[in-house]
Nucleic acid binder design. Structure first.
Lengths: 184, 184
DNA sequence: ACATACATGTAAATAGTTACATGATTTC
DNA sequence: GAAATCATGTAACTATTTACATGTATGT
């Protein structure tokens, strides 16, 4: 889904500035969607032109003026249509798995570092998600589901890494020594 | 990781044409990397210019001439450096989870369809991955790991969907009727 | 008849990210 | 003194996908 629609979605939950939308992306969407200022600000401009959102300017002392955006009725309608018309595609891109795919070409220590690092990252993500579940009380059922989805996947992956790591390392060692013997 | 490096990686496993590289992407990488002809062919041209791969032309009866690419020593060295220098970033983009995030804005039947569809897709992916594990005997340990990784994640997600679906649907129904009462 | 597999390649269009520009305030 | 937070915005760059162009053979 493109940044424009995602902004519309966030504004369905309440008014917000571009900066705040970015923060919400990071807090609530970051494990399955991303957007940067470079795409959010232009999106909000074009949504304003189309009449799907409006904004008021909020003057602040010692801070730049804030543009607080609200979704219009047309914007709401449009977003519901987008939801109805979106086929739920999924894409997963992992350089970690590329590294594992070519494990047999790498020094074992390097590989072990990569694996341990991946496990640490997953643990971190898991803690973040569990923290959200604990601390945020007013989540809708749908939002809670997206968090649980992330937790389920990460728990399974962490378990897999922990249970398979030593066997994988041993197998790689074998493959590499077999390769060396072949050469000599 | 970019298409060029990925092509280099595939060619580390043996010589291949652009068409065959695409097929290998689909068969072995598709659950964590993607590439189309529009990026593979230009990548192979530029790799050839840089001397990282070479090709011979294989004339075929009743088929266009095939360019069979092989990796050079420099190509191999370069790919090992790429592997060493790649930080294993991961990105997951899911429109399914966006749809779940805004579940409270959608008609329950529409939502249920989305969920059932997602479950079916996961089951399909799971079967594909398990098929690879069964049928492909000569996988390296690293390759087997990437498949097991996909299986672990998908099994966990399917289990989650199956166990949480009815509760989610019920909660959404409640949220929506609460909203309607508020309006009236 | 139509889709799929085989086979290579280009060009336009897409959709972003990264880095820059600007600048006060607060926290480490 | 450096980094992070707040706040908006632009422009160049990157890397891709999609669609097109071309053509045979085989399967449905």
């Amino acid at each position: 889904m493109d940044t424009s629609s995602l902004c519309l979605g966030v504004l369905c939950l309440g008014e917000a500035s571009g900066y705040e939308i970015k923060k919400m992306f990071e807090e609530s969407f970051s494990h399955f969607q991303a957007a940067s200022f470079g795409s959010i600000y232009p999106a909000l401009s074009s949504l304003t032109e189309k009449g799907l959102v409006t904004f008021r300017e909020e003057l602040q002392e010692k801070r730049p003026t804030k543009k607080v955006f609200s979704i219009t009725q047309e914007g709401r309608t449009q977003f519901l249509e987008t939801l109805a018309g979106t086929e739920p595609t999924e894409q997963y891109r992992s350089d970690f798995l590329v590294l594992m795919m070519f494990a047999h070409l790498q020094p074992p220590q390097q590989l072990e570092k990569t694996i341990d690092n991946q496990a640490a990252n997953i643990r971190g993500e898991l803690e973040t998600l569990q923290g959200i579940l604990k601390n945020c009380t007013e989540l809708t059922a749908g939002m809670r589901f997206t968090i649980e989805y992330g937790i389920a996947a990460n728990q399974a992956l962490l378990k897999l890494i922990e249970s398979r790591k030593s066997a994988l390392m041993a197998a790689i060692d074998q493959e590499q020594s077999a390769l060396k013997e072949l050469k000599s």
